[in-house]
Design a protein around this nucleic acid. Structure first.
Length: 779
DNA sequence: AGTACCTGCATTTTT
DNA sequence: TGCAGGTACT
């Protein structure tokens, strides 16, 4: 501890409350490792606190220490703290760190979890208030979509023209804003061909009949209960004496209301977040929540964590400069006492494949330690892309050079077909109302119950106003259906009865019951007989599923777990480069980070800009900020002039965010083959070999489209010149030559970029460094 | 029921 | 380009 810190600590001690002093007497070694701001965030226990934690400033440390401090000072018991995160991963980590800080086994914190898991817990206790039974099932996105599709088709609407996905998006959006069907504002009436609200109502009714909720409902139902039952709200308000919220900038309106309702009495709420890392606006997150905190909670203590422990000076400088381009920020000035380190490296490439090849080589260089750094493990390096289709180029390249990689963000365990099938069996056994699950398994494995039979079951169920399972039972007893289908259905219904009875009886373990269900239903047998290459893997997954049951009390607990949790990660021992999206990278850090594809249209994404304009650009800029701040030692940004998108070649300008990188923090690297004459010629030979790709019809169309494109007249800010080499001054009318497109005439000039009409047809905007001046027309 | 062909489409994603 | 979803045929 420095002398100044000691003085600070001494001065603080004089202002301490009695309880704090008593605590001090007992000692609080966990406070020692905190900087003054973190310490303030930890020690300001009463009243609203906003902890503005910049990237890499130790917010998890502060948050977990705060919990420990609450417990250690005797302010509260572990089960009276409400600590909310967005992901299960974050919740797990927090639990782990609180435990290790306490150093002793303390009873777990039952109310530390995700918004969704906490809401499930609350909702199970009061389900009847929103027309559900407490054993309700939670539908995932797929079930939700199938249900909506049914409703749409039942209404004779062309689901091609009006896709279920769109409706699902609209409804999700409304739920994110805490709008129940009766509260959807009139301004939204036009949604989904004027039928959005009607379908929303219908959908909610269907969910109730199915005794089911979707993810949005979990929040919305609890908010509704809190709003309509003050007595219940009061109980929770007084029970949760202290509230902590992680990633507050990601909260949507429903989550915000939920928190505000719970905190409105004692206002002991501590929200942690970073407005600069708000990147989920497109799924309902409201940056406004964090920007408004001080208004929502007057007298709030705002603590800024600005000392960054992650990145070197240049990386931080570059990130700060980029994010400063956003308006509407609370504003933070990150600093570090780390060494200067490497500048952010910037490099332009001819096309996406070359970019991938170069990054592959760089990774090998870092691995060998030939880049002025100690040798790095592949685990220390990551490639962060804007959109997942960018990953392909890297996978292709890494496969050919045999570089081990891992892609984060593939399909989740519980999204796999066999897992969902198995879970549907469990769901039917637990909740007979779960018609979606029943429909899923009724002919899985194939038992000769086709579309016709399912229709008949549906019809019967509707006539008698009962669940599908009961409808099936009636149909069987009435002797409907072809004999074969009837027999199979009878067997299934009896099976379900038997399984539920076994669950009720409780004489067998839920694991045994699960095995019985999968066995008697013929589901495991079905995969055993499967001859496709996936068969064995699916059986393996089913085994894993059953094994996973061991960690749970009963099947219902397990179902809840699996529907709320992604069970994705399996630790592997061989070091691998990580490839993932920028979104998935939030919260992570790597010694070396590659940020490819910084081209306007790709990043910032055209779609984002088209749909939300300036707001969209700002969110993209925050994404850029998140990307740069993932890097500890080396950050390499790159772009490609040409890229194949959906099979079409497309050329684009470097990202506008590149212009925003301050020159003093950037080192511009030279693309291979652009300077040395020998390399140049071999590179050109390579290009020539691939030139036929450019004579495709798609390419011609692309050129034609580009010809119609009018360049923006908006003045561009200072542009970083990519190539330090002397670039001749081009003027309109100049004749130029380009490696690939051949000869052309300059028709427009703006900061480093030229609009050129090529003799071979087509016009393009091209970086001046990629063309050479022709003194004379060569032919 | 299984397949072969066609069409349309294509950010970011947790729960 | 490559996929998912649907249709039409065997």
């Amino acid at each position: 501890m420095s002398e100044r810190d000691e003085t600070d600590a001494f001065e603080r001690a004089e202002n301490r409350s009695l309880s704090q002093m008593a605590m001090g007497a007992r000692g609080a070694p966990y406070l020692d490792g905190l900087n003054p701001e973190q310490r303030q965030a930890v020690e300001t226990l009463e009243g609203p606190v906003l902890m503005l934690a910049g990237a890499g400033t130790g917010k998890t440390k502060a948050l977990t220490t705060r919990i420990v401090h609450l417990l250690n000072t005797g302010h509260v018991r572990p089960n009276q703290i409400l600590a909310v995160t967005f992901t299960n991963k974050a919740a797990r980590e927090m639990k782990l760190r609180v435990g290790s800080l306490l150093g002793e086994a303390v009873e777990g914190m039952p109310w530390l979890g995700t918004f969704h898991s906490l809401c499930v817990k609350i909702l199970r206790r009061h389900a009847e208030l929103v027309g559900l039974k407490s054993n309700f099932t939670i539908l995932d996105t797929d079930d939700q979509l199938r249900l909506l599709k049914q409703l749409i088709r039942a209404d004779n609407i062309d689901d091609k023209k009006w896709p279920a996905r769109q409706l699902a998006g609209i409804i999700d959006n409304w739920k994110n804003r805490a709008w129940t069907p009766d509260k959807v504002p009139v301004g939204e009436a036009a949604a989904y061909n004027n039928k959005g609200v009607d379908f929303y109502k219908l959908y909610q009714m269907r969910l109730r009949t199915l005794n089911a909720t979707d993810f949005g409902d979990l929040l919305l139902h609890v908010v509704t209960i809190f709003q309509t039952h003050p007595d219940i709200l009061r109980k929770y308000q007084s029970w949760f004496r202290y509230i902590l919220v992680d990633e507050y900038q990601d909260t949507n309106v429903a989550q915000y209301l939920w928190l505000r309702l719970l905190a409105s009495e004692h206002k002991n709420i501590c929200c942690v977040g970073d407005d600069d890392q708000s990147i989920y606006g497109w799924r309902g997150a409201e940056v406004g929540n964090i920007l408004r905190f001080e208004k929502d909670f007057p007298g709030a203590h705002v603590v800024r964590l600005e000392q960054n422990y992650r990145s070197t000076h240049h990386i931080l400088g570059a990130a700060s400069a980029v994010i400063s381009g956003n308006k509407n920020r609370l504003g933070k000035t990150l600093w570090t006492d780390k060494k200067e380190g490497d500048q952010v490296r910037l490099i332009g490439h001819w096309d996406g494949e070359e970019e991938a090849r170069w990054i592959g080589e760089e990774i090998e260089n870092f691995q060998r330690g030939t880049r002025g750094h100690d040798p790095m493990s592949l685990d220390d390096m990551a490639i962060l892309v804007r959109a997942s289709h960018q990953m392909r180029a890297f996978e292709d390249r890494f496969l050919t050079i045999g570089l081990p990689y891992r892609v984060i963000g593939g399909p989740r365990f519980y999204e796999r077909m066999e897992i969902r099938d198995a879970m549907a069996y469990f769901r039917v056994a637990i909740s007979h109302e779960d018609g979606l699950a029943f429909e899923r398994i009724v002919n899985t494995p194939k038992r000769g119950i086709g579309d016709k039979a399912v229709q008949l079951i549906n019809q019967t169920a509707r006539e008698h106003d009962v669940s599908l399972l009961e409808g099936a039972r009636i149909l069987v007893e009435a002797g409907g259906l072809a004999a074969k289908a009837r027999g199979a259905l009878k067997q299934l219904v009896e099976g379900v009865d038997r399984w539920s009875a076994a669950i009720q009886a409780g004489t067998q373990s839920h694991i045994e019951i699960a095995e019985i269900i999968l066995d008697e239903s013929g589901y495991t047998g079905y995969w055993k007989n499967d001859k496709t290459p996936e068969g064995p893997g699916r059986l393996e997954n089913l085994k894993e599923l059953v094994k996973a049951l061991e960690g749970f009390e009963n099947l219902q607990g397990f179902l809840e777990h699996i529907s709320l949790i992604m069970e994705n990660e399996q630790e592997e021992n061989t070091p691998k480069v990580t490839i993932m999206t920028l979104h998935a990278a939030k919260g992570l850090e790597f010694p070396a980070v590659f940020l490819p594809g910084w081209e306007d249209g790709l990043f910032p994404s055209q779609r984002s800009m088209d749909e939300t304009g300036q707001k969209g650009v700002e969110e993209e800029r925050r994404l850029a900020y998140v990307g740069i701040t993932r890097a500890e030692e080396v950050c390499t940004i790159s772009f490609a002039t040409n890229r194949r998108v959906y099979g079409q070649w497309q050329s684009s300008m470097p990202s506008r965010f590149i212009d925003e990188l301050p020159i003093e923090h950037v080192e511009v690297l030279t693309p291979p083959g652009l300077h040395s004459p020998t390399a140049m010629s071999s590179d050109m030979a390579d290009k020539a070999a691939r030139a036929d790709a450019y004579s495709s019809p798609g390419w011609k169309r692309m050129q034609a489209r580009n010809a119609q494109y009018t360049p923006s007249t908006e003045p561009k800010p200072k542009r970083l010149i990519i190539d330090a080499e002397e670039i001749p001054d081009f003027a309109i009318g100049n004749r130029v030559a380009h490696e690939k497109y051949g000869a052309g005439t300059v028709i427009g000039v703006e900061a480093g970029k030229l609009s050129i009409v090529f003799d071979g047809g087509g016009a393009k905007k091209i970086l001046a460094s990629f063309v050479t001046m022709q003194d004379e027309v060569p032919f």
